[in-house]
């Protein structure tokens, strides 16, 4: 769907490249995640892919043609949800959606979306009176209005309570099941881990790794099993490598000791990100 080659971008009045020569592809029907800390270049990459920033270097192809050669048909295909709340504050939620609906050839019935996102009862309330979380949910519905083939989601669950974040993640997964493609940027590791088929680690404008979360865990994970057990009243913690768990010593421990917990020592994406990039995801 998207092919990006040696993409570079520098903001006016900036000496350094915000995006510094990155390559990646997004396949039809996959959820592709960009994981990185603030100011790593995630949102800038998204703005380039949705043609808001056009003065880039390198090549971007969308279905085999240069991205910039597309006109309005590209925007008929995509839905975008920005990180910040975007709505006409003096218009109601419904009026906001009705305005944007008129700009597309193909649209969906917003009622099921509003109901699913818990905004149906507030549809006639002015968007300016919404909480941040409600505005973010309205952003997401706005992105789904035109029945897009592809969604661009910038930090989609940022500012949402766990319940609504769950609903949004379920909707993203359903969108994928129905054949949709998603480009998602986030600094929230658990979202990326749960949603993405493939993930790219970005730091300082460079891509450090692109792979499936599973492959990254296998490649960079510790692959250990941690056992906690009681011995003479004391809590003992022992760690076994995957090779060691095949030995009699491991089985004897399980048989003879009062085991309290048994965990695989799977490394989180966040730990892998820090290992690969040397920077943390926070902030």
């Amino acid at each position: 769907m998207f092919k990006v080659r040696n993409l570079k971008f520098k903001y006016p009045n900036s000496k350094d490249y915000t995006i510094d020569g990155i390559d990646f592809e997004i396949q039809d029907g996959e959820i592709f995640g960009f994981l990185g800390p603030s100011a790593a270049g995630k949102s800038t990459t998204q703005k380039i892919l949705i043609k808001l920033l056009k003065d880039f270097e390198g090549e971007i192809e969308y279905y085999g043609k240069p991205l910039l050669s597309y006109r309005d048909e590209f925007y008929q295909d995509i839905g975008v949800s920005f990180e910040m709340p975007i709505s006409f504050s003096k218009l109601t939620a419904m009026e906001n959606l009705e305005f944007f609906k008129k700009l597309y050839k193909q649209t969906v019935d917003v009622e099921p979306l509003l109901k699913r996102m818990g905004l149906w009862d507030d549809r006639d309330k002015k968007a300016g009176e919404f909480s941040k979380g409600m505005k973010i949910r309205l952003n997401f519905i706005r992105a789904m209005l035109n029945k897009p083939k592809m969604l661009f989601l910038d930090e989609p669950t940022n500012g949402l309570d766990p319940g609504n974040a769950r609903i949004m993640k379920d909707m993203i997964l359903e969108f994928k099941k129905q054949g949709g493609t998603v480009f998602i940027t986030s600094h929230i590791m658990s979202d990326i881990d749960e949603l993405c088929d493939r993930v790219a680690f970005i730091a300082d404008g460079k891509l450090r790794e692109v792979d499936t979360p599973r492959n990254l865990k296998i490649k960079y994970g510790k692959r250990t099993v941690k056992v906690e057990y009681k011995e003479e009243g004391n809590l003992i913690v022992r760690e076994f490598s995957m090779d060691e768990i095949k030995t009699p010593a491991f089985f004897e421990l399980l048989r003879d000791k009062d085991i309290e917990t048994l965990h695989s020592g799977e490394t989180t994406l966040e730990e892998i990100f820090i290992k690969v990039t040397g920077v943390t995801l926070r902030g």
Binding site: K51, L52, D72, Y75, F82, F88, F100, L103, Y104, N146
Partner: peptide
């Protein structure tokens, strides 16, 4: 000014509007 303040221009610019 209002469109700038409320970032709605972003949303219009990622629609088919030229």
């Amino acid at each position: 000014f209002y469109e700038k303040q409320e970032h709605t221009m972003n949303s219009i610019m990622v629609s088919p509007v030229t």
